[in-house]
């Protein structure tokens, strides 16, 4: 039965059909599938399946990434309060776009996926100053700072990731906080993340979930 729910949910996600996906979840609960199973056996595997499709170059579009993250986020918000006990948070992330960058779509996709993977996300919004990234990461005890940049000059700029790296170094917290970067310029230059001081990069919002989870594990090791 759970397998059938998974299949129907995945089909709805790939069809970018939010209403159908939410109906599948609603019907599953009526069939006494637990909220925990909905999240961990349906929603998270759907994101993982999308990661697999992307890595196998099966032509998953940005709209499908967006809808998968959006629906996952909505379902998790609905299901978690119904859990028998509060879920264990696997880590904390602060996320925002780099200073001078006003493109928020990628950040939203990443945040939706992370939430489904039980990672606590603090969204700092658009045009975030480098000092603020670090201040907020420390304040929230975050393991990862995620910086999204859609333009090459904000990805490479002196007030983007480079400056965040410098501040982490100055404050002596590089072993406690890792930096993940993403956005169009990194797809066109896969080595760019190194030159701007990132620890890792993600090709898209969905795979960012995996990349950030790895960084959290690295910090917590």
């Amino acid at each position: 039965m759970l397998e059938q729910v998974m299949t129907q949910y995945n089909e709805a996600i790939m069809d970018t059909d939010r209403d159908r996906a939410l109906q599948v979840v609603h019907d599953a609960l009526a069939l006494e599938i637990t909220p925990e199973e909905v999240v961990f056996e349906v929603v998270v595997p759907a994101i993982e399946l999308m990661m697999k499709s992307i890595s196998e170059n099966q032509g998953v579009s940005l709209a499908q990434h967006f809808m998968a993250a959006q629906i996952a986020s909505e379902v998790v918000d609905d299901m978690v309060p119904r859990f028998r006990k509060a879920p264990q948070i696997i880590g904390r992330v602060v996320i925002g776009t780099s200073q001078g960058d006003f493109h928020g779509l990628g950040k939203r996709i990443v945040a939706g996926c992370l939430k489904a993977m039980m990672i606590e996300v603090t969204d700092l919004g658009l045009n975030v100053a480098p000092e603020r990234f670090v201040d907020e990461a420390l304040a929230h005890d975050a393991q990862v700072i995620a910086i999204s940049s859609m333009m090459i000059h904000t990805a490479r700029g002196e007030n983007g990731c480079r400056r965040v790296r410098q501040i982490l170094k100055e404050r002596g917290v590089e072993d406690r906080i890792k930096i993940a970067v993403g956005g169009a310029p990194y797809r066109f230059d896969p080595e760019l993340y190194r030159s701007v001081g990132g620890d890792a990069w993600a090709e898209n919002g969905i795979t960012a979930g995996r990349v950030i989870t790895c960084l959290i594990r690295e910090v917590r090791k």
């Binding site: 790939m14 069809d15 970018t16 032509g59 579009s61 940005l62 709209a63 499908q64």
Partner: peptide, 9 residues
């Protein structure tokens, strides 16, 4: 572009 939206869209 189908990088942005699915083919049916």
């Amino acid at each position: 572009s189908t990088d942005f939206i699915p083919r049916t869209f």
